[in-house]
Write a protein that binds this DNA or RNA. Structure first.
Lengths: 107, 107
DNA sequence: GACTTATATAACCTAGAACTGACATAGTCG
DNA sequence: CGACTATGTCAGTTCTAGGTTATATAAGTC
């Protein structure tokens, strides 16, 4: 599954957000997501699988717990894709800065 | 349709890429996409509609032609969402820079 | 060893996304 | 005007992502 498709799902985006704070167990993730989205534990587990298989997360076992961490690689891909478009808003920022500088000089 | 969902489709991503170069007619977009993906003109038209309705593109009429331009607003949303994760790779870049600086000093 | 907890998978169902082909509308040109 | 071009929409079909419930596995606990 492609990186953009993975991010297409709000539950998965939320999980990635949660993981951005640091390592979490499957259970912790499931608890939060269940509370927020009202879906079954199985549904969450399946999203976790997608995240694993698409490289967004890696897992480490500790007893019966599974500890998930983000792998930023695919996020970076998205960032790279976005790169050429960034000029659209940084341009405006530049323009804004120029304008501000001009205003300041006039004072 | 949510911005991430819109970007989930490869055809739509391609159209946005094409538009990043500048204004294009519906016909020009359709020709390219049909060649690259082998889908019908109707399918492309429907993707264009999604892009319009989700705010990724705006249209201007000129005779029978429709000229499409990117609106970067939703792309920016994605960029904003990505922001907190950027530290994952810029961190590494910083580390690399530090390392490079150290190496240089040693020379 | 039986019971419980943590996690993952399997089988099935459903809604909706994306496609096709047919049709609709409105400019353009002889 | 009639034919052609550019573009968009509609109706129907197909496929798949994401959900549920039930089941499986393996590690702790009494």
């Amino acid at each position: 599954m492609n990186a953009f498709d993975v991010l297409g799902d709000p539950v998965r985006r939320r999980i990635i957000e949660l993981l951005s704070e640091g390592e979490l167990t499957s259970g912790a993730i499931t608890a939060t997501v269940r509370a927020e989205f009202g879906i079954s534990h199985s549904a969450v587990a399946q999203h976790l699988r997608v995240l694993r298989e698409s490289g967004f997360a890696t897992v480490r076992a500790e007893g019966t717990r599974r500890l998930y961490v983000v792998d930023s690689t695919p996020l970076r891909e998205v960032d790279v894709w976005l790169e050429p478009f960034r000029r659209f808003w940084s341009q405006r920022l530049d323009a804004l800065e120029t304008e501000l500088a001009r205003t300041r000089r006039k004072k």
